[in-house]
Design a protein around this nucleic acid. Structure first.
Lengths: 119, 119
DNA sequence: CGACTCGTACGATAGGCATCGTAGTACGGG
DNA sequence: CCCGTACTACGATGCCTATCGTACGAGTCG
């Protein structure tokens, strides 16, 4: 069988089920500039981005920490693929639980970026 | 001019201007259960609610703290009226800066309340 | 196997924050 | 003027968290 990618190995990461995702945790996860930036890039460049793809102004340890917060809050899904760890937005789950929330946050972030960055 | 309500006195509270409101701060303010509850009540019961109207399971000191976080992040506007301090959502400013954000957060909070509270 | 890359785990640290209690200020009414 | 109400200011406390550095585990490639 072609079985949509066998997740590469036995290294499985704990994710909250859809029903376990809490709005407060999602908002908290998104309230950090680093993490908001990550989510914006994931939304823009499509899913399946490796951790190392992001060039955050912090060490790798801290990057790992932020990705874990995003995963444990239910914002992203993480899957190992070889040595890389691929990250993807949990659009379906978030849209089902909180319709329009992700979209309005992304729009708001984009507008603010223009407002602050573009003078 | 008829001076739309003289704000009762000289006690003025510092608010961020519309352009100074940061998305991250708003999300952080809304990520606390107490504050999210306050915002929900403000949205439901209309503006102009005094601090003492809210029956939060914390002391008054803590309540004051939460209201200040909401005000300084730009989520609410606070005005003294006699000994009372009236609170109102900054709907206009938020909708202008982050269209749809407040609405989707409120909808998400309501849905989650039903989901968790209603079994 | 050996080396290299990617990411983790762990400990440390410093700052933030939610919470409290007490003492104090501002306003309104008798 | 005195008192009660509404809210604040300040200090303390304990937890959470963003950050780092170093040492380690898991895969890949030669």
């Amino acid at each position: 069988m072609t079985t949509a990618t066998p997740t590469s190995s036995s290294r499985e990461l704990p994710h909250p089920a859809r029903e376990e995702i809490r709005l407060e945790s999602v908002l908290h996860a998104l309230s950090d500039p680093m993490r908001l930036q990550v989510v914006r890039e994931l939304a823009a460049d499509g899913d399946e981005l490796s951790c190392s793809h992001f060039d955050l102004p912090v060490t790798k340890s801290t990057t790992t920490h932020h990705f874990r917060v995003l995963r444990e809050s239910g914002v992203i899904r993480q899957v190992y693929r070889g040595t890389a760890k691929m990250n993807g937005l949990r659009r379906d789950d978030l849209d089902d639980l909180f319709p329009g929330l992700l979209a309005s946050v992304l729009t708001a972030a984009a507008r603010q970026a223009v407002r602050l960055g573009g003078g």
